[in-house]
């Protein structure tokens, strides 16, 4: 648990330093994820400890968004004034994005499968 958490933090730290150093548009943790993935590929997979810790952390990923979500209370004023355009944009765009991504992906992966056969 402790060892695995240290590994995750070290990779995040390396990611943050690289992001700052080269002024990258990607945040440090995403770079850390890519680097850890490369390390796993070189090493041939995660240790049992790292796998368990990651699973525990990701199982409750929703919890980690709660503090930022409560920040909605800072914007009640603007949301009250513009609730209709904001709600329409968020609902419409989210539904469209899920549908378009899924349909494009399904159509192309079917074509790839058909080409293989």
């Amino acid at each position: 648990m402790l060892g695995a958490l240290t590994i995750l933090l070290v990779f995040q730290l390396i990611g943050e330093v690289l992001a700052q150093l080269f002024a990258l548009p990607v945040p440090g943790p995403v770079i850390g994820m890519a680097l850890l993935f490369a390390a796993l590929a070189l090493r041939g997979g995660p240790s049992a400890e790292l796998r368990d810790t990651a699973q525990n952390l990701l199982q409750h990923l929703s919890l980690l968004f709660v503090p930022a979500g409560v920040g909605v209370m800072l914007h009640f004023g603007r949301i009250g004034d513009e609730w209709l355009p904001l709600a329409a944009a968020l609902v419409g765009s989210t539904l469209l994005t899920i549908a378009v991504t899924a349909l494009v992906l399904r159509a192309l992966s079917r074509r790839a499968e058909a080409a293989e056969k």
Binding site: L8, F37, L57
Partner: peptide, 25 residues
């Protein structure tokens, strides 16, 4: 005031993002 305490949870978003490398692998 609330966020003073809740930031400890918020902070874990970083390591959790790094941990996504494992299911990806």
């Amino acid at each position: 005031t609330y966020f003073d305490g809740a930031q400890f949870v918020h902070f874990l978003l970083g390591p959790a993002t790094v941990a996504l490398a494992i299911p990806l692998y």
